[in-house]
């Protein structure tokens, strides 16, 4: 009896740090964000007054917010599309044994291991208006004039493409590793059976392998979507939402409005605006994953 009670107490003690961590670092900020979003909290205000959905109604009037909402979707869908396609190709290339596979896997993982701010700063220089290495090469190859090189972060569409590509670069290792795991989990027999049955590479890949990986691809996409939807690092470092807000996404706008602009409540409203969207996406994905579950 005593032993069991001790074990229970020990279990509680061992579990407590994890619980504390979640409550302190995940739960509290989330609850605060929701509270702020329906309050009148400014960065320097004292007290709290419930204002209902005023903040949400207010942001919906804002052209910047509506733009950011659209950009968030564009950014997320664009980046995830690139990531999933590239991760599929990479995973396929990396699943077979070959000389130096370990090294290649290591290099592919690097963008994920390195702090994103570091990577994004690297990209900021690569895409810089004066010192861009890409433009330097283009100029050296006489493909563009020195004063007329493309401004990767200066034109609306190009800037969006740039932040999407950099974010995809960053997310790619994560998805590749997940898909690689999924690919490895498929019994070798199955693609072999398909080969004997007469299927070529593409048919095997699209009709057998990918459908079988659907659950795990869903997990990768779900994580990727949540990560991308809620991330502002790449946008903040590369463009700060510019040019003229054409890469502004909800998390960066929330930061500019709430922290720099001082309207915490509206910043919170902008950031929790994502939550229902993410919940719906997560629910759909998990449903899909369950339906596609195999064996």
């Amino acid at each position: 009896m005593g032993l069991r009670r001790d074990a229970g107490r020990l279990g509680a003690a061992m579990f407590a740090p994890a619980l504390l961590y979640i409550v302190a670092l995940v739960g509290t900020p989330l609850v605060l964000a929701f509270l702020y979003s329906v309050g009148n909290v400014k960065v320097g205000s004292v007290g709290y007054e419930f204002v209902g959905l005023d903040n949400f109604i207010s942001v919906l009037q804002s052209p910047t917010f509506r733009g950011a909402l659209l950009h968030s979707f564009l950014f997320t869908v664009g980046a995830q599309l690139i990531v999933i396609i590239s991760a599929n190709i990479l995973a396929l290339a990396l699943v077979d044994r070959f000389r130096g596979r370990g090294l290649v896997r290591f290099f592919i993982l690097l963008p994920w291991v390195a702090p994103i701010s570091l990577g994004a700063i690297g990209w900021k220089w690569i895409l810089d208006s004066i010192y861009s290495v890409i433009n330097w090469v283009l100029v050296q190859l006489h493909l563009v004039e020195p004063f007329d090189a493309p401004m990767w972060l200066g034109e609306g569409a190009l800037a969006m493409l740039s932040v999407i590509m950099v974010h995809a670069w960053r997310m790619l290792p994560f998805s590749t590793v997940i898909l690689l795991a999924g690919l490895t989990a498929i019994p070798k027999d199955i693609p072999e059976a398909a080969a004997v049955d007469g299927a070529g590479f593409w048919r095997t890949h699209f009709q057998i392998t990918i459908p079988m990986m659907t659950p795990i691809i869903n997990v990768a996409v779900l994580f990727g979507v949540v990560f991308t939807f809620t991330d502002m690092t790449v946008v903040y470092i590369l463009t700060r939402g510019g040019p003229y807000n054409s890469t502004q996404v909800l998390p960066s706008l929330a930061f500019f409005t709430g922290i720099l602009g001082g309207d915490l409540a509206e910043g919170a409203a902008i950031s929790v605006f994502l939550v229902p969207i993410l919940v719906v996406i997560a629910w759909l994905m998990l449903r899909l994953a369950r339906r596609a579950e195999v064996v």
Binding site: P187, D189, I190, V196, D197, G198, V294, V295
Partner: peptide, 21 residues
Amino acid sequence: LAPRDRGIAMVFQSYALYPHL
């Protein structure tokens, strides 16, 4: 030649049925 070009059919130990079909 690739398996598909040999006019053979094979049954695997695990049967290797396509689980999603």
